[in-house]
């Protein structure tokens, strides 16, 4: 399993592609929003939590179709399905690799972009924490969506259509944590719920995703 994780990370770094693209997208969005909304600090600060979360979510979405599609095309997925590692673990590892190359870097650059968007100082730590707790859910849910559409020739758009509604609870709780943090309100409940979604998704969705892959390989 470690081998699979290391291979996926090596592939992500060598081909560049999705990894850098998501970050660049997140960065561009955070630059474009003030240009569109106007430089007024109060307005920007108020919408910053939502914009940052939506940006992270869309950046995650960009590279989802690569989770399984590349392995499907070159036959690796067939071979992984007959390998001794259970397919559920393959899904979990691939979601983890996706998170390490998208969710984690997004989390790390988010405070910098928060400054661009005039996020109130109290919000930064909660922005990082909420992304840290929430982006794993985005990767796992995305891996499930990618598993559903892996056999399809033009699955990319469909993948977004399937995954976006599933992202709703994560987005709501994630944005809520940052908003409340920025306004100095109590945020224990949304934070706990956000963590619960990530943990629940990580525990259960690999099973659904693995059965979807089995169906698609059939």
């Amino acid at each position: 399993m470690k081998a699979l994780l290391l291979r996926d990370l090596a592939l992500a770094f060598r081909s560049g592609g999705g990894f850098g693209l998501g970050l660049a997208f997140f960065f561009l969005l955070s630059v474009l929003v003030p240009l569109g909304v106007g430089p007024e600090g109060g307005t920007l600060g108020r919408i910053a939590p939502g914009i940052l979360w939506v940006g992270a979510l869309l950046a995650c979405l960009l590279s989802l179709d690569r989770i399984f599609a590349l392995d499907f095309e070159d036959g690796s997925l067939d071979l992984l399905a007959t390998a001794p590692i259970p397919l559920e673990a393959v899904v979990a590892i691939k979601a983890l690799a996706h998170w390490l190359v998208t969710g984690l870097p997004l989390t790390l650059i988010a405070p910098g972009l928060g400054v661009f968007l005039n996020l109130p100082p109290g919000g930064h730590q909660w922005l990082v924490l909420s992304l840290l707790l929430g982006t794993p859910a985005l990767s796992v849910i995305g891996a499930f969506g990618a598993a559903l559409t892996v056999g399809l020739r033009r699955g990319g758009l469909l993948l977004s259509l399937l995954v976006l509604p599933l992202y709703v609870p994560t987005l709501i709780f994630g944005g809520e944590v940052v908003r409340r943090g920025a306004e100095g309100m109590a945020l224990g409940t949304p934070l706990a719920l956000l963590a619960a979604i990530s943990l629940g998704a990580a525990a259960l969705l690999p099973f659904a995703a693995a059965s979807a892959i089995r169906v698609n390989l059939r």
Binding site: P165, L166, P169, E176, T189, L193, S211
Partner: peptide, 23 residues
């Protein structure tokens, strides 16, 4: 098969969304 799996998972997330939105 795939739509059934989606329906199952989707139902859970639809419920979650309902509570999230209420919140």
């Amino acid at each position: 098969d795939l739509t059934s799996i989606l329906c199952l998972v989707g139902s859970v997330f639809a419920l979650l969304s309902r509570y999230a939105v209420n919140f």
